[in-house]
């Protein structure tokens, strides 16, 4: 149950709450969104606090900052995902842009860019047209940057589309499928 400390900004014709939605693994032993998850009014940025542990699939249509732990899959294909310094992700990630200050263990696909900042860590393969890795960051894996538009004729097609248009009228939090394990 998401508990917000402020009133959610109303969205047109939608009564469902905004914010990332989580469906836990079957059995429900691990998904435990805590009161720390909150939305900052007017900025469409959602935070998942450091005490939150999510196992399953996480979809959303607004920017998200994760300080907690997520295992499974994260899809924010039209938005920016920030993994805060306390964030620990063990998941496949699909986003428009990913900024990593914490730890990511899993493959990352971003349609715009991936930034691994000083102190950030990524173990996995990155597919993104732009990748910035700061000095002091840890990275192990592969980087596949699609060629710039002028050079695309020579390049092989990317393995999979990094971004797809978000379904219309989808609020930030649409409950996703349970992860098959």
């Amino acid at each position: 149950m998401w508990k917000r400390d402020e009133v959610v900004k109303p969205t047109s014709g939608q009564s469902t709450p905004t914010g990332p939605a989580v469906q836990s693994q079957q059995g429900g032993t691990s998904a435990a969104p805590q009161p720390e998850a909150r939305q900052q009014i007017g900025r469409d940025v959602v935070n998942i606090g450091k005490s939150v542990v999510i196992k399953g699939e996480l979809n959303g249509s607004e920017d998200l900052t994760i300080e907690g732990q997520v295992e499974g899959k994260i899809e924010l294909k039209e938005h920016v995902l920030t993994i805060g310094p306390n964030g620990k992700i063990k998941a496949q990630v699909f986003a428009k842009a990913l900024i990593v200050l914490g730890e990511v263990n899993g493959n990352v696909t971003a349609s715009e860019k991936v930034e691994i900042r000083d102190g950030g860590s990524v173990d996995g393969d990155i597919v993104s047209p732009r990748v910035a890795i700061a000095e002091g960051a840890h990275f192990r894996g592969s980087v596949d940057m699609q060629r710039k538009s002028g050079q695309q004729g020579q390049a092989s097609p990317p393995p999979r589309p990094a971004a797809q248009p978000a379904p219309q009228a989808q609020t930030a939090a649409q409950v996703a499928q349970p992860v098959a394990r």
């Binding site: 990748v131 890795i133 940057m145 020579q154």
Partner: peptide, 22 residues
């Protein structure tokens, strides 16, 4: 060791897929 500007150079300018094994 991973060097961000090298990744950009080899990825964007040369069009490589880069595997970093420090």
């Amino acid at each position: 060791p991973v060097v961000g500007s090298n990744v950009t150079f080899f990825g964007e300018e040369v069009g490589c897929k880069i595997l970093v094994e420090d």
